[in-house]
Simulated scan of single mutants.
Amino acid sequence: MRKIEFARKPRAYLAAPLFNDMERDFNARIESSMAPLIDVFLPQRDGGLLTKLVASGMPLEEARQNVFKKDIDAIASSDVLIAVLDGRTVDEGVSFELGYAYALGKLCIGLKTDDRVLLVTGDNPMVICSCHLIVSSIDEIVDVIRSPREIAASGNRLAF
Rank of each mutant, 00 (worst) to 15 (best):
K3S: 08
I4L: 15
F6M: 13
F6W: 15
K9C: 14
R11H: 11
A15R: 05
A15Q: 07
F19V: 13
F19H: 11
N20G: 02
N27L: 03
A28Q: 12
E31C: 10
S32Y: 04
S32K: 15
S33A: 14
I38A: 07
D39F: 14
D39K: 12
V40G: 03
F41E: 04
L49D: 13
L50K: 06
V54I: 15
A55G: 08
M58I: 01
M58G: 03
L60M: 12
E61Y: 07
E62R: 14
A63W: 00
A63F: 02
N66K: 13
V67S: 12
F68G: 07
I72F: 09
A74F: 10
I75D: 06
I75V: 15
S77F: 04
S78A: 15
D79R: 04
V80G: 02
A83G: 07
V84Y: 06
T89H: 11
V90L: 09
D91F: 00
V94L: 07
V94A: 06
A101M: 11
A103P: 02
I109F: 02
G110R: 12
D115V: 09
R116D: 08
R116E: 14
R116K: 15
V117M: 02
L118P: 00
L118D: 13
L119F: 14
N124I: 02
I128T: 15
L133D: 06
V135D: 05
S137A: 01
S137I: 03
V142H: 01
D143T: 07
V144Y: 01
I145M: 03
I145S: 01
R146Y: 09
S147P: 00
P148W: 10
R157A: 05
F160W: 15
F160Q: 07
